[in-house]
Amino acid sequence: MGIAQRILEGDIRAASRLMRDIDDRMPSALEPLKELYPKTGRAYIIGITGPPGSGKSTIVDKMVDIFRKEGKTVGIVAVDPTSPFTGGAILGDRIRMQRHATDEGVFIRSLATRGCLGGLTRSTQDIINVMDAMGKDIILVETVGVGQDEVEIVNTAHTSIVILVPGLGDDIQAIKAGIIEIGDLFVINKCDREGADKMERDLRMVLEMGRKREDGWEPPIFKTEAILGKGIFELVYGIYRHKQALEQNQALEKKLRERTKTTFLEILETEVMAHFIEKMEKEGQWDKIIEDLMNRRIDPYSVAEKVMAEELKKH
């Protein structure tokens, strides 16, 4: 039986091995991914992002309780950073979620960024697809702890949640571009701490001042104390409200169309690049082109045009 078939029949080991092959960028991962693609697109994908230590893993853990009580199955992708010096990583997001490790309705996968800068990994979308094909109803994607500009999650999730905590700086921090723009829902976690109310006021002001969103959605703010489970129920129902709003005004359809296009173009780009690089290497031009560029004997724009023109002539 093929790998894809085994995954569709519920073989956990086959699924986790395929995820490994995807993450290690093994060419062998491609065939099963092709087979699984038609079985994807059913899961609802929720992104959770925020600074390190803001409580992302704990909030994920508590939300899982609610989803499971509702009978939904859950996949979790949790990203932690790779050391730029050794290439190693300590993946510790499971610590907060381990009580779900024996629940057959929950599948947790930890990933290391491996040099990817947007808060996710290169493999994230494909790994989500595997979980989707496994039949998970909800897929929670927890980004690496982010600063201001790691917004890749917005191209992956249906609903993006930005988690903040009091005491991270003045209100100007929140006016800056970046993660503050991508939240469909905002959470002020550890709201028992001093400054939570002021933070909520500041954030509300920033959100009201901001440009109106095309889809008309006004991002709500939730206050939580995740460790005690406070505010999590409200948050989950906030997600459902956002989902409903997306579905009602065709924003979801638009979002998915845009995303499908981006993903396809990325894959096409990789293929095309690989083709040209292989060709230039095989014909022994690669080193010469680089050498000539280095010495300014030629310019890269003309070379690119020439390579393309030669390719088109062939057909």
Binding site: I12, L91, G92, R94, Q98, A101, T102
Partner: peptide, 20 residues
Amino acid sequence: IYTGIRQTPEQIANAAIQED
């Protein structure tokens, strides 16, 4: 992958499999 203290053998084995 570090899963923290007080783990049952079931939790450990499942984590090992899910994380490949």
